[in-house]
Design a protein around this nucleic acid. Structure first.
Lengths: 193, 193
DNA sequence: GTCTATAGCGTGATAGAC
DNA sequence: GTCTATCACGCTATAGAC
């Protein structure tokens, strides 16, 4: 019942799930990567579902705490979104496999975790939307459909892990700057009349 | 060996795969939805993999043909991107489940299809990037990292199916207009100095 | 073209020796 | 804490009657 061993199992599982997907990875695969037999895993974890839950739920709570904190700061809408973008980039680069698991495999969570995950995700989207609406009310943002902007922006942030390492020279700072410019300032040189 | 029955199977499979994921849907589930037994499916299709391939590959070829055609038009970069955005929105709304399968389940394609799919996807990304670079060369777009812009824009277009039906009143035209504005023109009222 | 029956295999998980 | 052995089950796919 070594706790380090447990962490090691969960970490290795996240990497395998990232590569092949939750259902395609067997307990035998996972054990083999760690140099033990599948049955030995059960001294450290109680089920495959528990591993997924351990990977996903910690991260989901982390995102929730962060947006909660940002939302109550006394900042403008743009500053808040910059902080959220930065946090997504940091998490994507530091915890790639866990983040990819969260986005792709949450449907396989046990019912309780799944319910909690969806609550957290819906709350995150609602807080993000509120920040956008704040910006539009206060004149900092153009008055557009705030839903379309929120959903499409969150889509970019949630799928960074697909491409952040596809080209050389994508540093954290460069990605953050690029995303802020593209998402917030636009790319067209002179708005078409 | 009725061809309509085959189409019916493939269509139903796409819907189930969208809901529960390719691996979680069994041939028994699929057969039951159609009111027959699992073994009867094999009079119309030869394997579960073949169903996935039929769903995914047709759509992948369709996207390729479209960007190929747009790329060789004598349009500006912005007009080309607007055409691509419109095509993504149309396809997302008209073929939601097939599109979601393509994005989420392509890893389970048989090796040949998988190889072909990745070739098509890489070619699509390269063509999109070339359109962006064209715009920057010709002064139509701001000079930014074209990779970051391409990847993040494609992320939005590829994941539309996640949210396009979350709110009432998201019509095709409204989504297209919203995306063009958000992705190309930006949301910030007055660029921060 | 659908059925029943079943082959053949891989899965998550457990029991009990060491 | 890891092992061997195994259970109980579900999976894709096939054979052959109707």
């Amino acid at each position: 019942m070594n706790a380090n061993r447990r962490e090691q199992i969960i970490h290795m599982a996240a990497n395998l799930f990232l590569d092949r997907g939750y259902t395609a990875v067997t307990m035998r695969d996972l054990a083999q990567e760690l140099g033990i037999k599948a049955s030995s895993l059960y001294n450290h974890i109680s089920s495959k579902e528990e591993i997924l839950s351990a990977i996903v739920m910690g991260l989901a709570e982390e995102f929730s705490r962060h947006i909660e904190q940002v939302a109550q700061e006394d900042w403008g809408s743009v500053a808040k979104m910059e902080a959220l973008i930065a946090m997504h980039v940091d998490t994507t680069l530091d915890k790639t496999s866990a983040l990819a698991c969260m986005n792709r495999e949450w449907k396989f969570l046990d019912p309780d975790s799944r319910k909690r995950y969806l609550e957290l995700r819906n709350a995150y989207e609602a807080q993000f939307l509120a920040i956008v609406q704040q910006g539009m009310r206060q004149g900092e943002l153009k008055r557009r459909d705030p839903h379309i902007f929120s959903y499409s922006t969150l889509s970019v942030l949630r799928t960074l892990y697909h491409w952040y390492n596809k080209e050389e020279g994508f540093s954290k700072e460069k990605i953050k700057e690029g995303l802020v410019q593209n998402l917030l300032l636009g790319i067209v040189e002179r708005p078409l009349l």
